[in-house]
Amino acid sequence: MTMPEPEVQPSGAQELARDLVVIPDRRLPLVPNIGVIGGTESVLVIDTGLGLTNAEKVLAFATEFARGRRLYLTTTHFHPEHAFGAQVFAGAATFLVNRAQAEDLAAKGPGYLEMFKGLDEVVARRLEGVQPAAPDLVYDTRYDLDLGGRVVELRATGRAHSKGDQVITVPGDGVMFTGDLVEAGQFSIFPWFPPHDTDVSGTRWLAVMERLMAEKPRIVVPGHGEVGGPERLADVRDYLRLLRDETWVRRDSGVGEETIAAEVRAVMLARYPQWDGQEWIEKGVGCLCTEHAA
């Protein structure tokens, strides 16, 4: 079956706080939740959507939203539906990310571009003309962006879903954008593709979730799925903990990885029968098997 068009629809933007909206993913594959945050002087866009056409629509929406204010763009991590539209913003916005993400874009961007083009003809068409963009501004671990009367905190989390994950928070409103560190109603995406990409870490991801929960956000915007409260973080924390424990107890017993994956999959489907993305369970098991002795 051909997948549905991964189309961003800015007309569906929802207000989360004053001068702060999210363009929802509408539960479509390869469509992220996109944030637009305003201050008195500047506006920050979070993620671009997949490809140039989506990014053009996001830029048009942000430009109208800004009404003359300066534009910034950041991306939660380098994966295509989040960052592979950044070139559209060149000259119109300042593109800033953390250093680890910039390195991911440079080193892995071209490979991921080709991999995603091979997923489906719909995706390939969306990615025509795309080139991974180089950021204008790079920070190491922390960056406070003053939009004018509103400071947005950009924080590199360290290796988890990817090496370059970034969380964006608006402290004054209690809003947190997590990218794919959090999905709602979906099994966590483990981009575990040995030997080509093994940067994802289940154990570090779990530690990141504990830290994010300690910040006690009021609103959590996941990479994909419905916006919610702090329970979004707890759901992922609990899933990752269960995935780790069920994998490791079988690893301790000397069970083979194929058997572990089948048994753990059954446990997870019984626990979370309504969740999408079942194909990521085995990827998570494979990752955690390698971290068993860590």
Rank of each mutant, 00 (worst) to 15 (best):
R250F: 03
L28A: 11
D144T: 04
D120L: 02
G284W: 04
P230G: 05
P194E: 09
D165Y: 00
S162I: 07
H292N: 07
V264E: 01
A156P: 04
D140F: 04
R244N: 02
A93E: 04
G185H: 04
R204T: 07
I23R: 13
F177M: 01
F61E: 00
V236M: 12
F78T: 08
R67Q: 15
M1L: 13
V88Y: 02
G228N: 03
E114G: 07
V220I: 05
D252Q: 11
K117L: 04
G35C: 06
V8M: 07
T290E: 15
I168P: 01
L44M: 11
L240C: 09
E231D: 15
H224N: 12
V255S: 00
T40H: 10
R244M: 08
K57L: 13
R142V: 15
G202C: 02
G225K: 01
A55N: 06
E226V: 12
R142K: 14
E153M: 02
G223P: 13
V123R: 00
E64Q: 06
E103M: 10
H79M: 14
L243D: 01
A83R: 03
E56W: 07
E231G: 14
P10T: 08
P230A: 13
L71T: 06
V8I: 15
G229F: 09
V22S: 06
L20M: 14
P217G: 05
G172F: 02
V122C: 07
V167N: 05
L212R: 00
V31S: 09
G49Q: 01
K216N: 14
R69P: 01
G284V: 10
T157Y: 07
E64Y: 09
D173P: 01
L137I: 12
A60M: 07
G35P: 09
D245T: 10
L233K: 01
F89R: 05
D19S: 13
N33M: 05
R204G: 10
V58S: 02
R150Q: 06
R204S: 14
D136G: 15
H224C: 08
V220D: 08
P194S: 09
P171G: 03
Q186L: 12
